[in-house]
Design a binder for these strands. Structure first.
Lengths: 245, 245
DNA sequence: TGACTTAGGGGCATTGAGCCACTAACATAA
DNA sequence: TTATGTTAGTGGCTCAATGCCCCTAAGTCA
């Protein structure tokens, strides 16, 4: 018997149902900016366990539909928001004996950023109650299901941390935006102010934006409109931005 | 019937064996410095699938023994190296339909750093063949089992990236070390040279080391010995280090 | 036409890193 | 005892990026 035949025989006799394995799911923190606040999407659980509690959207891997974990995340995001191509990044995997009453479970958490003008709730047929909640409120005033408060904090922390040295917040804005809007979005995510000149120098030197020539009009000098260059999605800067002391 | 009773009933009737779930495991890249090279621990698989191929150490979660994913990682690390308290960090979770011939599978990867003087191979009773391999060789010349080449690259990349702005490499050295040894370790991990003065300024300004007063003797000026301050395990710097142009 | 508001940039001060050369402290050999 | 070689450790200049302040630009509106 060759080694290959042996492996084939092994695989034929293998059945995962014979083993004790953890439950494995995907949960995600979907962020956007609404009413000048960083907000996160929550769903009210329509099923046991934790029925009726607020939770991060998520669910099990569909072994038929999904080819990768990212597929599961994309599917969930689309079901909840109707957004197909957002910024999506894996954050951290939580797994323990007690985090789900059903037993040993593992959840892979994802961070999603979607533009504020792309929100179309209710594509989902699960008839779950869905709400956008300011992140600070969600962290401090909502007792989320399972360990979702911890997951949310991990995602929020990752977001804040990456904003220090990347251009991530462009994914929270519509296609076209002004530098002032971009700066305000940075400030929202960072939670502190940013020095205007340093910010503009940094963004423009990074060469990730292109002006669209149009102007945004108001009762003052119009601002140039920019959009992200095709390959400029996630640029890394060299230093931090800090506000005035 | 109250809500709580309903949940209890739900949990009693719940059986994970009724569902299709992915296989879930933990794999890890254990790094150390040997012969002035960054090396990684590989094991030769003693079981199907991929029997006889080199792979990263890892295995399934023991739902009885392990309370968290970190426990699984610690247990595996101890089995292979005899090290109990290393630097251990979760890196990335890989999950897909095809990465394991047994079917849909998920693996949570961990990065471990152990001091070069703590290595005691063979605590394991699995009688697997175990080897330290220079990382570059492992990546380029070893066709690892499953998607372990990709996992190794992710861990290696995470390590290199974090060395840019943290003091991680102290975990690759014995308790006491000289600044020159520390610099050499940084250079090994980074793959390029580091400017001496800048390096020392940065490390000492960070205030994460304390001199032990002793000196290391040689045929030249003795170097001060340092050790990591109790709470200085993983300091974050503000900027990058770069070698001469 | 002047007041008001936000966009955008000029230019200097400050800070931290790169760099090189210099001194310090040992062993060893003449 | 002294010269020599080697590595440890530092002083101090240069350069580049950022912080900071304030000026100008370009609109609306009364």
């Amino acid at each position: 018997m060759t080694k290959k035949q042996t492996e084939k025989a092994f695989l034929e006799s293998y059945d995962i149902h014979d083993f004790d394995v953890p439950l494995t799911s995907v949960d995600m923190a979907i962020f956007t900016v609404r009413s000048e606040k960083l907000q996160v999407l929550l769903v009210k659980r329509a099923q046991h366990p934790a029925l009726g509690q607020w939770a991060l959207p998520g669910g099990f891997i569909d072994l038929k539909l999904d080819k990768t974990l990212m597929d599961t995340a994309k599917r969930k995001l689309y079901e909840k928001t109707g957004v197909r191509i957002p910024y999506l990044e894996q954050v951290e995997t939580f797994g323990s004996q007690g985090r789900d009453p059903r037993g040993w479970s593992v959840t892979i958490s994802y961070l999603a950023l979607i533009p504020s003008d792309h929100i179309t709730l209710g594509k989902d047929d699960s008839s779950e109650q869905v709400a956008w909640v300011p992140v600070d409120e969600a962290e401090d005033q909502y007792p989320l299901a399972f360990d979702h408060n911890r997951i949310l904090e991990a995602c929020h922390q990752r977001l804040r941390s990456k904003v220090q040295y990347t251009s991530l917040p462009v994914n929270l804005l519509p296609n076209e935006f002004t530098l002032t809007e971009l700066q305000q979005t940075f400030e929202l995510v960072l939670g502190n102010t940013v020095e205007k000149k340093s910010f503009r120098r940094r963004i423009l030197d990074a060469d990730i934006l292109e002006a669209t020539g149009n102007m945004k009009t108001g009762s003052n000098r119009p601002a140039k409109l920019y959009r992200v260059k095709p390959e400029g999605q996630s640029h890394f800067f060299t230093r931090n931005i800090e506000g005035p002391r």
